[in-house]
Amino acid sequence: MSLLQLMGVTKRFGGLVAVNDVSLEIASGQLVGIVGPNGSGKTTLFNVISGVFFPEEGRVFFDGQDITRLPSYKRAPMGIGRTFQIPRPFGSATVRENVAVGAMFGTLGHQLNVNKSLKIADDIIEKVGLADHRNKLAGMLTPVEKKLMEIARALAMKPKLLMMDEAMAGMHPNDIDQMVNFIKKITQEESLAVVAMVEHIMRAVTGMAEKVIVLHQGSKLVDAPTKEALQDERVMEVYFGKSVEAL
């Protein structure tokens, strides 16, 4: 059974159709890349899945439950975690406290007290390589560190579905490779099911995604295994324009 299923989801902002009749399925443990040019509706799709917006049409199922109209704070304990395109740290709290908040209100939240959550936070901070910044205020981190912290915060929630919104934009290529390896590793270790991600950076997509979903102007263009998808003519056209031979 698929972990996440979208059926004919449409989200409009006034006259603008940001996500147009998108259906997709993501299985447990699958690494999925969601790509598309700017304005193709990737972030809106994330917002619909995490409950920031409700869709006008269509349904969203998670873990067998219809969550189309479920408020976002109820989705996190079910196992939906995410990061933001522009990091949104809780600036006046330390990195450690930020990550602990993830543990406290995530899937295991009801059985974790503050001390246990802080312990989990320490563990994960170590893993993402922020140990030196543990007691810094999150607002004082560099942009890349903020992104790492957001990933740590989302991981602390022990999500079944982790959505990363351009988490690697702006990172050094070496760091991207490192991050890709880390995420691959953690998906297996934590049996953290799915990492869906929105990414411009093809290096990251090809490095880890098993399947790629390409969005274009709000609609789903291609949904196929990574290699296949990236060689698809329509995808090439969206990214690079028509090939010379075709003209």
């Binding site: 908040v101 993830g102 503050v114």
Partner: peptide, 26 residues
């Protein structure tokens, strides 16, 4: 401050939308 309530309040004070997505019933 020392309980979950304090962490939830800090989170929502800093960024209410992010707090919600983190599972906090703001």
């Amino acid at each position: 401050m020392r309980s979950k309530i304090g962490y939830a309040l800090t989170a929502l004070r800093e960024d209410e939308d992010a707090a919600k997505v983190m599972g906090i019933n703001v």
